[in-house]
Deep mutational scan, measured.
Amino acid sequence: NKFNKELQWATWEIFNLPNLNEEQVKAFIDSLRDDPSQSANLLAEAKKLNDAQA
Rank of each mutant, 00 (worst) to 15 (best):
T11L: 14
S39L: 07
I14K: 03
A27I: 10
Q53T: 06
K2I: 15
E23P: 05
A40Q: 11
F3G: 08
D51Q: 12
Q8Y: 13
K26Q: 09
E22P: 08
K2G: 15
R33E: 12
T11Q: 09
D35S: 09
N1F: 00
L17D: 00
L42F: 10
Q8A: 13
S37L: 08
L49E: 03
Q53H: 05
K5R: 03
P18F: 06
N21M: 08
D30G: 08
L32Y: 03
A52S: 10
A54D: 10
N4L: 08
I14S: 03
L7Y: 10
I29R: 02
D35K: 12
F28D: 00
N41T: 13
L32S: 02
F28V: 02
K48G: 07
S39I: 12
P18M: 07
L17K: 01
P18V: 07
K26L: 09
L49S: 03
A44T: 08
K47D: 01
D34T: 11
K2W: 13
D34G: 10
L32G: 01
D35T: 11
V25E: 02
F15G: 15
Q24N: 02
A27P: 01
E45N: 10
L43Y: 06
N21L: 14
D30W: 07
Q38S: 08
N41R: 09
A10W: 04
K26I: 12
Q53F: 07
E22R: 11
L49Y: 05
K48S: 09
D30Y: 07
Q8N: 06
I29N: 03
Q24G: 00
N50A: 02
A10L: 08
F28A: 02
E22A: 13
F28Y: 08
K26V: 09
P18H: 11
P36E: 04
V25D: 00
A44M: 12
Q24E: 04
F15W: 14
F3L: 08
L7V: 14
A52G: 12
Q38V: 08
N16W: 05
N50K: 01
E22M: 15
A52I: 12
S39G: 04
D51F: 09
R33S: 13
D34N: 05
Q8K: 06
R33M: 15
K5G: 10
D51P: 00
D34H: 10
T11V: 11
S31Y: 13
L42Y: 07
Q24F: 02
A40H: 09
A40F: 13
S37E: 07
I29T: 06
L42K: 05
L17W: 02
K2F: 12
S37H: 06
K48L: 13
K2T: 15
N1G: 06
S37I: 07
L7R: 01
A46R: 00
A40W: 13
F15S: 14
Q8T: 07
K2M: 15
P18G: 10
K48I: 10
Q53P: 03
L7W: 08
V25I: 09
Q24P: 00
K5N: 15
L43K: 03
E45A: 11
S31Q: 13
R33D: 09
E23T: 13
K5A: 15
E6T: 03
A54G: 14
P36R: 02
N4Y: 10
D34Q: 14
Q8H: 07
E13D: 06
N16H: 12
L42S: 02
S37K: 08
T11D: 04
N4I: 07
Q24H: 02
S37A: 06
R33L: 12
K2E: 15
A27W: 15
K48W: 10
N4E: 15
W12D: 15
N4H: 13
K5Q: 15
E22Q: 13
D51E: 11
